[in-house]
Amino acid sequence: FKKYEKTLREHPELLSLEDEIKQESQIILKKKALGELTDEELKAYHDKKAYFENHPLIVNYLNLKSEVNDYLIQVETIINEELLKAID
């Protein structure tokens, strides 16, 4: 996980793209609420987002991040169960 995180930091274009997507997401929401969103803008946003989300580095990073989170939840559950046993 840390390896992918470090590798991701070495790809400023991906980090920049992520920031762009976040900013465009807010713009899309505002334009949609005002009824000013065009199909072309929405398609361009979805294309950019799909490119980012399907990039192999991002896919691997997010999968590993999810696994790490799952492990942390399991550890937390085990610790909490043992603490409850100790209290009883």
Rank of each mutant, 00 (worst) to 15 (best):
I28F: 01
E18H: 08
I79T: 02
I28T: 02
Q23I: 06
L64Q: 08
H46W: 15
E36W: 05
K6W: 11
K85D: 14
I73Q: 11
L72P: 01
N63G: 10
E82F: 08
E36L: 13
H46F: 14
H55K: 14
I27G: 04
L62M: 10
K65A: 03
K32T: 04
I28R: 05
L14T: 03
Y61A: 07
L57E: 05
E53R: 01
E76D: 13
T38F: 01
L64S: 06
E24P: 02
V68I: 15
E18S: 10
N60I: 11
Y71M: 09
K3A: 13
L83G: 02
N69F: 11
P56M: 11
K31A: 02
I27F: 10
L29M: 03
G35D: 02
S16V: 04
Y51H: 08
S16R: 05
A86S: 12
H46V: 13
Q23E: 05
A86H: 08
I79W: 06
L57M: 14
E13R: 01
I28N: 01
E13V: 01
I79A: 11
I87K: 13
E82V: 00
N54E: 09
L57C: 06
E13N: 06
N54Q: 10
E41V: 09
N80H: 08
K22P: 00
K2C: 03
K22G: 00
D88A: 14
Y61K: 05
I73G: 07
T38M: 02
K22M: 13
L72G: 03
L29P: 00
S25F: 15
A50W: 12
I27T: 08
E36C: 03
I28L: 07
G35A: 04
A33H: 04
D19G: 06
T38L: 04
K6S: 14
I28D: 00
K3P: 00
N60D: 04
P56C: 07
E18G: 08
L64Y: 09
E36V: 10
F52P: 00
D47S: 12
A33E: 05
L14Q: 06
L14N: 05
L15E: 14
L72C: 04
S16E: 15
V59H: 11
T77Y: 03
K6E: 15
R9P: 00
I73L: 15
L84D: 04
N80I: 02
N80Q: 13
T7F: 10
E40H: 11
G35Y: 08
Y61N: 04
I21F: 02
K3Q: 07
K6Y: 13
L84A: 12
K48H: 02
E41M: 12
H11L: 14
